[in-house]
């Protein structure tokens, strides 16, 4: 893990709110090996998407990045000036946006939306070379070259998401952050889009961070899975290990709440609600919903500890497995 392509250390993001500071991302650390696929899962509002934007340094007021470090190929991003950071977006770290239904400019043709990305990153090509490059990109993601002349409203949801992937890979980024890329799509299209994403990712050798809440999809796609709860990473483990021996009670609850074809009947959920980020419980933020919670959990915030294998978990009660 020494030559990590992306290294996030103690990243913290908060939002100013009239009722108090909202800590949306609270001391998240992880690293990403070249070509690795990391999943980040958690309930809505746990800070997944905020973290994706924080890595790109795109948090808008009233939000702010309070601290922490993000390194891409060893280069610290927090000290870059705005222009250098702009050039790094897409070229170094590309975003495949959440809800691609609205992620394309409705009044511009798809081709033009790829063109301006290339142009603003200093790629100057002749008309024909440009058209060829755009056609190539579209075909790479499984779209006809003719889609370049279409407007977003003329495409289906899956096609729009593919177009977004085409834009994301147009400068061959080192890291792709896919923020719930398929949450608005039906399962058939979802699968096609994920396969496309997996294929272009392999071809580019880019590392991927897949943000989402669909544990089933995650399990199929990623190598390693991180579980977030209330702005913190509570467990990170290789996906097989996590599914078979989850260490954190929250992870266990997430996994057992997946519907299964074998055991039909009522769906099992997690009791209680996700806590308000501006009013977190003391100690372990999960303790009010945790059946195992003891005195220590109410007082002391657990840190991530090695749990055997490549797993880490932040729970006082979890025991390392050899």
């Amino acid at each position: 893990m020494s030559e990590a392509v992306l290294e996030v250390r103690d990243l913290r993001v908060s939002f100013a709110h009239p009722l108090g500071l909202v800590r949306a991302v609270d001391g998240v650390s992880f690293s990403l090996a070249p070509g690795e696929r990391l999943g980040l899962a958690g309930e809505s509002g746990c800070g997944k998407s905020t973290m994706a934007l924080a890595i790109l340094r795109m948090i808008r007021p009233p939000g702010r990045i309070d601290g922490g470090s993000v390194r891409l190929d060893g280069v610290e991003l927090s000290v870059l000036n705005e222009e250098a950071m702009r050039r790094l977006r897409l070229a170094g770290i590309a975003l495949v946006p959440q809800g691609s239904m609205n992620s394309l400019n409705p009044v511009m043709r798809i081709g033009a939306q790829i063109e301006d990305a290339l142009a603003d990153h200093g790629v100057s090509l002749s008309r024909t070379a440009l058209a060829e490059r755009i056609a190539d990109l579209l075909e790479t993601v499984g779209l006809r070259a003719g889609v370049a002349a279409s407007y977003p409203h003329q495409l289906s949801g899956g096609m729009k998401q593919r177009a977004c992937i085409a834009i994301a890979i147009c400068l061959r980024p080192r890291v792709i952050i896919a923020d719930e890329p398929t949450s608005a799509l039906d399962v058939v299209v979802q699968r096609q889009v994920m396969e496309t994403l997996a294929r272009v990712q392999r071809d580019l050798g880019a590392a991927v961070i897949l943000v989402g809440h669909d544990m089933g999809l995650m399990a199929q796609f990623v190598d390693r899975l991180g579980i977030m709860y209330a702005g913190r990473l509570v467990e990170v483990a290789p996906v097989g290990q996590m599914v078979t021996v989850p260490r954190h009670p929250y992870t266990r609850a997430l996994i057992s709440s997946l519907p299964s074809l074998e055991h039909r009947g009522g769906l099992q959920g997690i009791p209680g609600l996700a806590p308000l980020l501006r009013d977190l419980p003391s100690g372990c933020a999960f303790h009010p919903r945790c059946s195992l919670a003891g005195e220590r959990c109410r007082i002391e915030t657990p840190a991530l500890r090695p749990m055997g294998g490549n797993a880490v978990a932040a729970c006082h009660l979890a025991e390392p497995v050899a």
Binding site: L53, L56, M58, R86, R87, L88, R89, L90, A91, A94, L95, P97, Q98, G99, S100, M101, N102, S103, L104, N105, P106, D116, A117, D120, H121, C164, I167
Partner: peptide, 15 residues
């Protein structure tokens, strides 16, 4: 969303 994505594309502020 398309403005957020435009920014994530690393477009110039003017664009």
């Amino acid at each position: 969303d398309y403005v957020v994505f435009a920014e994530a594309k690393g477009l110039r502020a003017g664009t």
